[in-house]
Design a protein around this nucleic acid. Structure first.
Length: 486
RNA sequence: GCGCGGUUAGUUAAAUGGCAUAACCGCUGGUUUCCAACCAGCUGUCACGGGUUCGAUUCCCGUACCGCGCACCA
């Protein structure tokens, strides 16, 4: 379904239809901040809802939290984020090479390219700073969280205890995070304010993945460190084989890569746009032993969607050190352990938003309008109701049906313009089903449902409408089969 | 943050140192009644600030924002 569309074209489409606007555009916008409009907020909420259902509600080994955006600043000292404040941005006086160095090293270190002197360009501050307390002079300096993960670690003990989870288990969270990016670009791909959907998955070291058989023969394009360094092409492989051959180091990574890919597929994304790329030694974080990215082929190229870092016990140990409190749990199987994070599937909501929009967007040449083939689960509106004749009894009956459906679904009503125009309007918003009431409806108490993707129609009893829609949307039953329900 | 290019209606575009246009979208009415038909009408625009000028959307300077490249992405 994917059409060739640039990220700019998508941005302008999103603005035109009310999905996403530059934030505060009335005053000229602000780079890296975006507002979601009437359709955007619905889509975004549906993405988050689907993610939560798939990762938390449908699993036995997962619970969620919702941490605060501003928290005790010591959390960020423990995590290592605050130490970056001693960094300063510098520029070489001779060759204009730009980098950042430790504040205390100014005057000591020389430019690695030409040996020239560095000149300070100011403090390098990747976190948003704020003040807690209304009197500035007495206020505590605090930060807007630059990631959601640390709230999971900081609450780890209480959450484990109260939810009575046994290893292996995960803690999930959806929430906003803030980064002072130097140059936010590519529409909502890199924002300064963004939302993460994240899991920290805990095991005791060396624990096997009990779910590895569940991923069956799921395969995807693998781009290992070795392939990247020897300039080989990425290779389509079964994830289980990639693990058995030692390309993916743990069964957990194979499992989570498959699980995350499946989530995207379930919601209508196409497999061939995804790949798993291993981090090279050079780009890996200090705490990670093996990191894989789930990447997606955006119009501007392959980009990271989701990182799968193996963080080990780095974070919990850091918090032990700074808080002087034990992070040890007493697990029935593993005994007293500080668990390891074997995987951290962490996904930006805005990036998932882009993926689903790009996958859905199609300029239908026959219809000569945009059709957004969003999964019914993600679609901002599930159905629209039209009177074929916009007056009299037909109008009345259609409004009744509309009001009745509102009880259960996000539904639109539209009586303006020709019927074709109304279909087209809803195609562009991704509304999967349009219900039309005509003169026959008055007699036989039935209405027509038209399917967005095929423009096919079925005739159903009005009394069955709610039930049929539910089956179409939630159970994704076949459209023509739905027409046979009496 | 640096360099280069850009910013005209919701969108896409045109023109201009002297009344700022069009198409599409949207809205109202008519007509039609199952895939953006048609007719009549309506709303809405020179990113912001300063300068030059009798007069600036147009020329100059600054700022914001957007794109590309570099850097950044802890």
């Amino acid at each position: 379904m994917t059409s060739k569309i640039t990220i700019d074209e998508l941005a302008s489409f999103c603005k035109r239809k009310g999905f996403v606007y530059p934030s505060g555009e009335l005053y000229g916008s602000l780079a890296g901040f975006w507002d979601f409009g009437p359709l955007g907020v619905e889509l975004k909420n549906n993405i988050k809802k689907s993610w939560w259902k798939y990762h938390v509600h449908k699993r036995e080994d997962m619970v969620g939290i919702d941490g605060a955006i501003i928290t005790n600043p010591k959390v960020w000292e423990a995590s290592g984020h605050v130490s970056n404040f001693v960094d300063i941005a510098v520029v070489c006086k001779k060759c204009k090479n730009k980098t950042k160095i430790d504040k205390h090293e100014l005057g000591k270190v020389k430019c690695e390219k030409c040996g020239g002197e560095f000149e300070s360009k100011g403090e390098f501050n990747p976190m948003f700073v704020t003040h807690v307390g209304p009197i500035q002079e007495d206020a505590i300096k605090a930060y807007l969280r630059p990631e959601t993960a640390q709230l999971i670690f900081a609450n780890f003990k209480s959450v484990q205890e109260v939810s009575r989870l046994k290893l292996p288990f995960g803690i999930a969270q959806i929430g906003k995070a803030f980064r002072n990016e130097i140059s936010p670009r590519e529409f909502i791909f890199r924002c300064r304010e963004f939302e993460q959907m994240e899991i920290e998955y805990f095991i005791s070291q060396g624990m096997k993945c009990p779910y590895i058989d569940e991923i069956g023969n799921i395969s995807m394009t693998i781009y290992s460190e070795e392939m990247q360094k020897s300039e080989k092409k990425p290779k389509e492989m079964k994830l289980r084989d990639a693990w058995k051959q030692g390309i993916i180091k743990t069964d957990w990574h194979a499992y989570w890569l498959a699980t995350e890919l499946q989530w995207f597929i379930l919601l209508g994304a196409s497999e061939d746009k995804f790949r798993a790329r291993q981090h090279t030694k050079e780009e890996k974080s200090h705490y990670a032993s093996d990191t894989w990215d789930l990447e997606y082929e955006f119009p501007m190229g392959w980009r990271e969607l989701q990182g799968f870092a193996n963080r080990g016990d780095f974070d919990l140990r850091q918090h032990e050190k700074h808080s002087k409190k034990s992070m040890e749990i007493n697990d029935p199987e593993s005994g007293k352990v500080v668990p390891h994070v074997v995987c951290e599937p962490s996904l930006g909501v805005e990036r998932a938003f882009l993926v689903f929009m790009l996958e859905a967007y199609e300029h239908d040449k026959k219809r000569d309008n945009i059709v957004l083939h969003l999964s019914p689960r993600l679609a901002p509106y599930k159905a629209a109701v039209f009177p074929l004749i916009s007056k009299g009894e037909v109008l009345e009956m259609s409004r009744e049906i509309y009001r009745d459906l509102l009880e259960d679904f996000a539904v639109l009503f539209d009586k303006s313009g020709s019927i074709g125009r109304r279909y087209a309007r809803n195609d562009e918003m991704g509304t999967p089903y349009c219900i039309t009431v005509d003169e026959d409806s008055l007699k036989d108490k039935s209405a027509t449902i038209r399917e967005r993707d095929t423009t096919k129609q079925i005739r159903v009893k009005v009394s069955e409408l709610r039930d049929i829609l539910r089956k179409l949307i939630r159970d994704e039953i076949d459209f023509e089969e739905a027409g046979k329900i009496v």
